[in-house]
Each structure stands twice: as C-alpha cells, then as structure tokens.
Write a protein that binds this DNA or RNA. Structure first.
Lengths: 260, 260
DNA sequence: CGCAATTTTGACGTAGTTCAACACGTGTGG
DNA sequence: CCACACGTGTTGAACTACGTCAAAATTGCG
C-alpha cells in the first residue's frame, strides 16, 4: 500500500514512544488531502518517502547503506525537499563567513525542517541528526505541482505556514533577551519539554540527545556555565538528571524562574 | 480612484522619503493580483484602506478623529486584519502574565504586522505606533473570501508567508545568543539599518524614532548599558548620533563586531 | 522659563567568562 | 592487556562585563 513506511524495516523504531504517526505531524495539513482518499489523487508514493539518517561512523559494517550521513541537508544547498521529523532530534547549524558554527535551533518529532528555505529556495542552515532519526520527506517540486492542481492543497500549505510562523515567533520570543542565564535555561527546558510533550505525552521528562556543548552554543552561554546551572538546579531539586533522562521535578519553580 | 491614499490629506507624509509605495511593500504579493487590472476583480476599495494612527495625546484639537490611538491593535484581541507599514515605525509589545512588558520586535515601512496571528486568529502582541505612522490594512475575512475565489491569490499569500518565515528567522537568528552586549548592539544596528535601507536607500543612516528604553528592553539589556555602549561606539568613531539621526561611520568595524 | 521625562555618567556588587585542572568513557595502537 | 589520545562534562579561582543604585545632564513640553 502506498502509505506503508519504509522505516518498518527497522524493528524498534515504529513501536517506540518517540515515533510520531501522521496524525500528530506538523506536515499533516500538506499530506492530508492526499491521504483523504479522494480518488482524484493517489500520488502518495510519489510525494512521501520515509528516510532514516544515522550517525556517520557508528558501525563500519553497515556502511553499504547510503543513508549513513548524519546530515539531512547542508547549508546553502538548493532547496529540494522539506522534512517532518518522525523520530529523534535534529540540530540546525548556521555557519558564519568566519567559519564559526552557531546552533540556531532544534527539531523534535512532529516538527518541520527546511520550510523557511521556501523563499530563497536554498537551505539557510545545515540539519544534523542527533542519533538514530527518521524523517518524512516532501519534495517541493512535486508539492508545488500538486498545489497547482489542487487549490485545497494550497489552503493547507497556507495553514501550515501560518502555524509555523506562529510557532517560530513563540519559540524565539520565549528565549530572546532573558536577563540571567538561569532564567534562560529554565525557559529553554520548559520549551523543549512542552514541544516533546506533544508526542511523548509527558510534560516533565525528556531524553537529552543534545550535548551540553550544543545547548550552550544555542543559548549563547559557555559549557561551564550550563554545567554549573544544571548542577545548581539539581541541588535545589528543581530537576533531576539520570544518564540521558532529564526530569523537571518542580514545574512550578522552573516556570517562575523562566519569566523572572 | 480606488488606489488613492487617505494619507494624501497630510501634506508632508506622501513626499517624505520614509513613505513606501506599493512597489516596495511586503504586502505586494497579496495586493498585486487586485491591482493588476484583471477586470474580474475590482475589489480594491473594499480590500485596501489607508490609515494614519498618531500618538494619543499629541494635540487635543484633532481628537474628533477616531484614529488618534497609537495602538494599531491590542494583544489577545481577535484577528481582524493584517497590516503593512507605509511610513513610520511600530514597536511590538508582548505582555506577560505578571504584567511586565517585553518589546518583541520593531516594524519599518514595507514590513508586515500581525501575519503571525493568522494561526491562532488572535494577536500575539500589541502594535504601537512610534510617532506619525500610516499603514495599509488588509482584512483577513475579505482576504480569505477573495482567496477562495482566486487561486492565484492563494499562491501569492503562500509566497508572502514563506518570505515572512525566512525574514523572521533571519532577524532573530542575527540577534539571539550573542556573547557580549557590544556584539548584540552591533548586530541590531546592522539589522535595522539594512531593513530601513530597502526604502530609505541609505545603508548607514537611520532615524531613531525608537527610545533607548525600548531598544534596551528589546535587546534584553539595561538602558544604562545601552547608553554606555553607544557612547563607546561614538568615541571609537564607529557611529555618530546627531539628535535622532544615527549614522554608521564604519560599516566594516560594526560588521566585524556583530559576528564576534 | 521651569518642570518632567529621558538619557548619560559614576561607583560598586554580582553573574558569567576565561583559563586551568580533573574525572569519566571510548576508541586506538603497541 | 595497558598506555595513550581524545571528546565530553564537572569544578575551582581570577577577571571582566553587565546590572544596580544614585545622581547629574540633557531633552521635550506646557
């Protein structure tokens, strides 16, 4: 059937709690008209493909697979597709002229990557998979071709873009211009927890696939400062870190900190 | 004629260099199909209206005019229209639950206000005119009505939204997570200069209708710090401030500072 | 002019950076 | 197997930039 997922090859992924089905995906409004069974369009197999990027040097044995690169796309490359995260976490890196890298965002299951490249038609940053990820790929050429055929498709794309516009505004607004690093970190933790809660179900728990380095880079603070803050948060029993699992113990206090 | 501007009543505004005509407006892609003289649509007078908000307590004599409020729209109000700035500057204020206000953005001629309310259908912040401003108003109800009639209109709206998505990303990315306040301010100056350059023509000069208070609030630093930085920039001959006119003397040095 | 609001400047305390050392896990090669 | 380099994370000490509080200077407006 046309809706079958390529990722079903992988045994665990599909049953994992971190796997997002179509009903909870940001791309839904674009895919829906195709899925809705109107006999006029049965283009699913052309438009949707599942893909599973993994880390480049994990195991040398499976190197025959051409999906081993952790990079979903590279900055400045011409836009070919936009993506929706199915499972895992992506970091978005922008490279300056001087060569320094700045983490400009993270993407979690159900969220979109690359839609802000639609205007310039080239990617504004590199998207790098953190761990074993899977995405849903929509080729823009085919998307626009379909759009010209189906007006309803255009409406859905508009809805998608307006939603993204709102989300983007909210996410950055929540973090930009915070007074202290403490407050900034609290806001960040709330932000990523709530974004993960949509699919994981839990508002206070996240798996930290992101390194401290990347978090610090994103927030514009030093690794050392982040480390100290996390320690302090733990001492105060605001959060708990167990391996890669971070739990917010006092949502109330963290919230209070975040908008101080 | 339907395209005549209400602001022509005002003597100076129309001839001012800070006035943006339709050709340089972000809303163009939405208005264009209507303007393009296709005989099927002559809805201009219904869709476009010019408006001139001014400061609330400037002159008590002209208070008969109901446009005296400096607030274009208020946070949490239901979305009725999106706006394009014709002249002047707007500040966007978000009010937190605790009552504190945070400046979340500025809008200059040719730029859009309120398009990020399309998703929730209520405004996410208040838009306040700084000085004598004029905007172009597009009512969403009529916009969507027109959209359902004209598929090309939808395409143009998509283009508008993708452009906004890109711009928004760029503007925030340029400022978020800068190490020092010096670097942050440099990036901010570059940002607003380039945004103004589109219509003023000059890349290195802007009229500062924004108060130091608002700039500091937006950047998340104190008024005092901002003042000190501006003084230091002047001492180093990087910028010059003459009344409300700010000039970047060394674009090179400011650029270097901005991405350090 | 004179008052009020805004901006600038100064002195001091604190939060975050910087530099450095150390702990821990992992992969590599002898 | 151990020795070693390497990446990541944590902790300590000195330094610096920004915040805070206060007062002076400037601007704007009646």
């Amino acid at each position: 059937m046309s809706l079958s997922h390529k990722s079903e090859n992988k045994t665990v992924t599909h049953t994992s709690t971190h796997y997002v089905d179509c009903d909870n995906c940001s791309m839904q409004s674009v895919c829906k008209p195709i899925n809705s069974g109107e006999q006029s369009f049965d283009l699913t197999s052309n438009y949707l493909t599942r893909r599973v990027p993994v880390n480049p040097v994990t195991s040398s044995s499976t190197l025959k697979d051409n999906e081993t690169d952790a990079k979903l796309f590279a900055q400045a490359m011409p836009l070919t597709a936009i993506y929706a995260v199915c499972s895992g976490t992506f970091k978005l890196c922008h490279q300056n002229e001087d060569g320094s890298e700045k983490v400009v965002g993270f993407r979690f299951p159900g969220e979109l990557i690359g839609e802000d490249a639609l205007f310039l038609e080239k990617y504004n940053y590199s998207a790098i998979a953190l761990g074993d990820n899977s995405v849903c790929e929509v080729f823009v050429k085919q998307l626009s071709a379909c759009g010209s055929l189906a007006p309803e498709m255009q409406l859905n794309l508009i809805q998608l873009l307006t939603k993204q516009s709102y989300q983007q505004q909210r996410n950055t607004q929540a973090l930009f211009g915070k007074k202290s690093a403490e407050c900034l970190l609290a806001a960040f933790l709330l932000n990523i927890c709530s974004r993960n809660a949509k699919h994981s179900g839990c508002e206070t728990e996240i798996e930290l696939t992101i390194s401290r380095q990347d978090i610090a880079n994103y927030l514009g603070i030093r690794r050392e400062t982040l480390s100290r803050l996390l320690s302090r948060f733990q001492q105060k029993a605001l959060i708990n870190i167990d391996g890669k699992k971070l739990t917010i113990l006092s949502l109330k206090d963290i919230s209070a900190l975040s908008n101080s």
